[in-house]
Amino acid sequence: MKLVKVYVTLKDSVLDAQGEAIKSAINTMGYKQLADVHMGKYFELSFDDDYAQLDQDVNAICDDLLANPNIETYRYEIMEEQ
């Protein structure tokens, strides 16, 4: 099986309200040197091994569902599933 790990995050131009709230909580915990927190989403997709169009299809799945290109960017890595 092929394992695809997808990471979706907000574009830099979009204020990450949750990231800001988490940052302020971490600062309150006493970690004053923390400069920034970005929160995102993580997906694991498993595919059959012989999938010629895997790369192309993962791109399409990300563009059409997992990420909203108006506000988010994504990246992914393809690996052998253990």
Partner: peptide, 17 residues
């Protein structure tokens, strides 16, 4: 409607969440 692309832009979490 924005997710569909029938309207421009997007709606995201309120500034004060």
């Amino acid at each position: 409607l924005t997710e569909l692309g029938l309207l421009p832009g997007a709606l995201i979490q309120n500034e004060k969440s």
